[in-house]
Design a binder for these strands. Structure first.
Lengths: 347, 347
DNA sequence: GGAGCGAAAGAAAAGGTTTTCTCTGCACGA
DNA sequence: TCGTGCAGAGAAAACCTTTTCTTTCGCTCC
């Protein structure tokens, strides 16, 4: 319906309703004081004309663009995409849109995108990444707008959101123990990753012993390899807690090839709950979900609060993970499933 | 360095350079007429002060926001993310940023995001999806801004970019033939997909016969199942062209479990070149890449041209795919590899 | 009856640029 | 010497809202 070249301005609405632009503006924004009748008349006129305020004009004066920037070096989107979904979810009904900027690991590219965002007067920036213990290749510490870090390392005194690897891993190990498993091994990624250390720490705490921890690559191949190593030992495990789903898939495939039954003989748990891997494995993997969408929602909420000038306690917040039960562990499901459920306080 | 609360305005630059704001503006934008000395003096002042023009003020008058919107229902990002990367690549040095809006398959959500984008005066919109023969759940046909469709079906008379499934599939089949394979089968997705039909058509044309085409789901499971079916036949194939990488992976795994050697006994080709699947398969999959990043680059270029008022021929453009050789086919590599290389005409 | 007050609504400024228009010299030709 | 034309630079309008500041008007209270 809103055809015709020139967009309709608030001036048109005002003159149609027989009021001044000032009154029209106040009527539409539910501010100022006026007869309820006048307010309704203006709103009716706006609807009839299909008026939509020009966000640039509004932003110019309000010094807010209703826009935030998401900066990430996770080209593949494995982590950023769920985070993005959460952010968007939290912001869309506030009328806030999100600039997505993939900056690889290139400082120059990061700078370019950052500058473009600042020029556009973003109300805030969320930084995200593919690794919890690495910084983006661009300095965000002295910006004229608020910054929230989600799933990447923040600067001193920043607001940072990460998943609680310890809690998630604990859920996984306790699940295995609850199923009666006694000899649990841990096959995981490179020891340099903070989350690898954290998950291993939770593993040891969970079984109350040193246990068996094999560090390697984040690949299916390493899963295979690790099984080969484990089955050379005197005592083979009856459960394997894996550092991510790809390793878990490699483990499961290798076990099947050896004629070891999953989950009958050995239970396997993955990490990340990457549907495409966990769901297609035979049997489908029980895995720890990092609740990245919830994390994104929280990041969106926080950056908005900061943008509106509300105070937000700085520091690192760990958000709980949740164990998703499929078929790779056996036993009765729904054991610890509910414990990690993130309380989505809002609506 | 650019600390301090208030941002520096062009007024500050002007007064530092000892000129009027009008002159300053012209100097910085390389427009108008003035002594080269003056121009340089202004530019120097701008640099020293770290001046960055306020994009909202500029956009308000120029009626351009240097912003475009990307609308997609591909929540998972398998297709949209590479497209997005290409778009961003094409636009970043024009100073254009991208709003990413995931709208699932929800018309209401689509409407909300679309309205938000239009309010923000985006210069154009790119629509993308997860399927080439389906529309987004929101009507983009009478918008006040240009629209380009990338990897989703467009409206009548629109500018639409898709990958050339026929050409890509032909490359794959010809590759197999060149390797001496005689009995090539085709295991693919649901017949309802246009790309499935197209790939099957190219398969038949390539082998010059009806061949064997098995339709099923886009899953590894179906790949297993299909192999079971094929190996019940009198004559087993010596090559399998798969409709996507997940099916191909299922096929390869099933063949290995049967003791059939890949690629010694049977060559397998996938489609999509999804690194995470193709690369982790044993052996790594030769696969058809749809060049989605190039497609995104082209979409970005086109939407910008339209935004600048340049004429763009409407219609559906098919962009070539490229066969990526790994190890699942055997023989000498680099056979048809170069044929599909996309000519990136620009820069 | 007039001072004072409060509600309704309008006038105008503000926000930071770009762009058009105007003005001032100066060189040049008649 | 007097136009003419043009280069260089500035004044001011324009972009579209929001917001502050006035104005108007009717009412109450002394």
């Amino acid at each position: 319906m809103s055809a015709g070249g020139g967009r309709v301005r608030i001036y048109d609405v005002a003159s149609r309703a027989g009021v001044s632009v000032a009154t029209a503006s106040k009527a539409l924004n539910d501010t100022g004081r006026m007869t309820e009748e006048t307010r309704q008349r203006v709103k009716a006129a706006a609807t009839e004309l299909g008026f939509r305020p020009n966000a640039m004009a509004r932003g110019l004066i309000q010094k807010r663009s209703f826009t935030i920037g998401l900066l990430t070096n996770d080209t593949y989107g494995r982590f950023t995409l769920p985070v993005m979904a959460g952010i968007s979810e939290a912001l869309v009904d506030q009328g806030v849109s999100v600039f997505l900027c993939g900056i690889e690991d290139d400082p120059a590219l990061g700078r370019v995108h950052l500058d473009a965002m600042l020029d556009k007067q973003v109300d805030g920036i969320i930084a995200s990444g593919k690794r919890i213990d690495r910084r983006l290749p661009v300095d965000l510490s002295n910006l004229p707008v608020p910054v929230v870090y989600a799933f990447t390392e923040g600067h001193e005194g920043s607001v940072t959101l990460v998943s609680d690897d310890f809690q998630g891993s604990t859920e996984a190990v306790e699940h295995l123990i609850a199923l009666g498993r006694k000899r649990i091994a841990h096959v995981t990624g490179p020891e340099t990753f903070a989350s690898v250390k954290e998950r291993a720490r939770a593993y040891r705490a969970g079984i109350g012993a040193e246990g068996v921890v094999l560090y390697g690559a984040w690949s299916e191949h390493w899963g295979h390899e690790a099984v080969a190593q484990l089955w050379q030992r005197r005592e083979t495990p009856d459960a394997i807690f894996c550092g991510n789903d790809q390793i878990a898939r490699g483990v499961v495939d290798a076990l099947r090839e050896r004629g070891v039954k999953v989950p009958a003989d050995v239970s396997v748990v993955g990490f990340d709950n990457w549907e495409i891997v966990a769901g297609q494995t035979r049997p489908p993997l029980t895995s720890v979900d990092m609740n990245l969408t919830a994390l994104g929602r929280e990041a969106g909420r926080l950056v908005l609060e900061l943008a509106e000038g509300k105070p937000v306690e700085p520091g690192v917040r760990k958000l709980p993970c949740q164990l998703v039960i499929r078929e790779s562990c056996g036993g009765n499901a729904a054991v610890t499933e509910r414990r990690g459920g993130l309380v989505t306080a809002a609506d």
